[in-house]
Every structure is written in C-alpha cells, then in structure tokens.
C-alpha cells in the first residue's frame, strides 16, 4: 500500500482561470528603471492593487506606476516572482501567513536560495513595502531556514547582531524598546 502523500499542507495552485487578455503596465523604480509587467501580477501587491483600482475607478488610463521605495534590480526580482505567481490564489498566501510552518515550492526555493543575503533582504523589504504576502512568507521562511544548523555565534554573524557589550546602532537602538 503506497503511503499517503501529505498534500494537505502544501498549497495547491488554483486552476487557471480563463483570464482576460494580458494588460501590460509600466512600472518605474526609484532609480528610474522602467519595467513592464502584467496587471494580474501587480495585483498580488496590495499597494499596487489599490493604486490600480483607483485608476480603474476614475477611468484614467494607467500608463506608468511609480514605485518610489524600491530600486530597479529589486523591483525586477519582485516582478519576476509576481509573474510566476500571478495565477495563484491570494487566499493561499493569506492562509499561510499565520502558520508556523510554511512550505516553499521548488521554484520559489530555487529563486530565493540563489539570491545573496543582501538581495534577499532588499527583496523582503520591497515585498513588505508593496505588501506582497506570499513573497514575505517565502522570504522569511528562507531566512529562517538559513539559520538551521548554526550555532549562536554563527547566527550572530549571519544576522549582524552586535555583541551584548557593543553599543547598538541607531537603527536598532529602540527596536525592542
């Protein structure tokens, strides 16, 4: 008897819906780079979705979206991830948000693992600013996985946490106050 696969924990991508023709929108990063993306991919971001919705409500032509707090390279990564997951159901990410364990699909694992830590930090920060729940979850899980098998000192080195006797920097002075 074949063992049952525990597929309940894994998020199953929703069945592709008969979608409307792709609607391409230009997105401009903070450093002036202009990228093109599908609107369905941009709807994964709550921030951009609200902006797009505002344009649609006012019946204004949406030519270019400006993302002022994300640089071009990071925005390209974000859009790449959104293009991959534009068919996903946003309810899956919302359901995973409160879980203690998140399963990362293979594509996302490969996508996030190959990134250097600096780029991963920028990607997670951009996802936070754009409010992309799925990307935040996967990114945080990737960071949590990077701490596996490491000692305390290695974690301190990895996460850049100062020694107890060191003076905390200004950016972290009040983070646990």
């Amino acid at each position: 008897m074949a063992p049952k696969k525990n597929s309940a924990k894994r998020p199953q991508p929703s069945t592709p819906k008969p979608s409307a023709p792709a609607r391409i929108v230009k997105v401009q990063s903070s450093d002036g780079h202009i990228l093109q993306a599908d609107v369905r991919a941009l709807l994964l971001s709550s921030t951009l979705a609200a902006t797009i919705k505002g344009y649609d409500d006012e019946n204004k032509p949406l030519e270019k979206l400006e993302v002022n707090n994300v640089v071009g390279f990071t925005l390209k990564l974000v859009l790449e991830w959104c293009e991959k997951h534009k068919e996903d159901d946003p309810a899956i990410a919302q359901a995973e948000k409160d879980k203690k364990n998140i399963f990362i699909p293979s594509w996302d694992r490969h996508f996030l693992t190959k990134l250097p830590m600096g780029n991963l930090f920028d990607l997670i920060t951009a996802a936070y600013h754009l409010d992309i729940t799925g990307l935040i979850n996967y990114g945080c899980k990737t960071v949590a996985n990077s701490a596996k098998g490491k000692s305390t000192e290695e974690m301190r080195e990895l996460f850049g946490i100062p020694e107890p006797w060191e003076q905390p920097s200004t950016s972290t002075a009040t983070w646990d106050d």
Binding site: K100, N137, V143, A144
Partner: peptide, 18 residues
C-alpha cells in the same frame, strides 16, 4: 550577512516565528 535588525518589525517577527 542578513541584517535582520534592519527588517521591519512585522517581518522580523515573522522570521523568528518561522
């Protein structure tokens, strides 16, 4: 290095929680 202390609070809490 992953500067965890520079992450937003909610994201940092998520990382620790996971």
């Amino acid at each position: 290095k992953f500067p965890m202390l520079k992450l937003p609070d909610l994201v940092r809490e998520t990382v620790i929680r996971l």
